[in-house]
């Protein structure tokens, strides 16, 4: 049976998770978007409340399954639904928004324990060249949580940018040691 690889996208609402999956997926992404009913509605009309799902057929190298999780802390339980077999995570940040840093702080507070166990890449999206002060603040937040990860500036719509993200994640997997739990390899 061909291998199944699982990649999980997390990040604040509006950081670009759905966009990443739409850019990568061979199939029309399965979405669970609903209209926002809180302050978030000022920034975006709808938000994911369960997951986004997409697939990339890798031929003989199996299937890459793509999961995007809701950004709000109250949906943290969805990570438990998709965590088994996850090869790593992509943490997205809206680098063009004043709330981007707050969003990252929230994401790290919610997922720090998971991020310590798995490789992840921090991706600054929506800004072609985020100021160094913004990048430094992001790295400081990681350090405050005892996390270490590469930081990439991406355009979530760009397939080549996402290929670089995937390449970086694979580099971490090839050279790193991660306490992946038994039974979490998802056929990989």
């Amino acid at each position: 049976m061909n291998a199944c690889h699982k990649l999980v996208f997390i990040g604040e609402p509006g950081a670009g998770k759905t966009t990443c999956i739409a850019a990568l997926s061979d199939i029309a992404p399965v979405t669970t978007d609903v209209g926002c009913t809180d302050d978030l509605a000022r920034r975006k009309a709808s938000t994911t409340v369960a997951l986004d799902y997409g697939e990339m057929d890798l031929g003989e190298q199996g299937m890459l399954r793509l999961y995007g999780l809701p950004g709000q802390e109250r949906f943290r339980f969805m990570f438990d639904v998709v965590r088994d077999g996850a090869m790593g995570l992509v943490v997205l940040v809206d680098a063009a928004s004043a709330q981007g840093l707050d969003g990252l702080a929230g994401t790290l507070a919610t997922y720090a324990d998971e991020l310590r166990q798995r490789p992840f890449v921090l991706c600054l999206n929506k800004h072609p060249d985020p100021p160094m002060a913004f990048r430094e603040r992001c790295m400081a937040m990681l350090r405050d949580q005892g996390l270490v990860a590469p930081l990439l500036v991406i355009d979530a719509r760009s397939r080549s940018d996402l290929a670089q993200v995937f390449r970086m994640l694979c580099l971490l997997l090839d050279h790193g040691d991660y306490p992946v739990l038994d039974g979490e390899r998802g056929g990989a």
Partner: peptide
């Protein structure tokens, strides 16, 4: 609410309204 926040809540037992609201929305 459809995006997972509790609006009103009545309970005969203790429970986490925020979590149930989020799971209700996801389901």
């Amino acid at each position: 609410s459809r995006d997972g926040r509790p609006f009103v809540w009545r309970s005969a037992v203790a429970g986490d309204s925020g979590k149930l609201a989020a799971m209700t929305s996801s389901l």
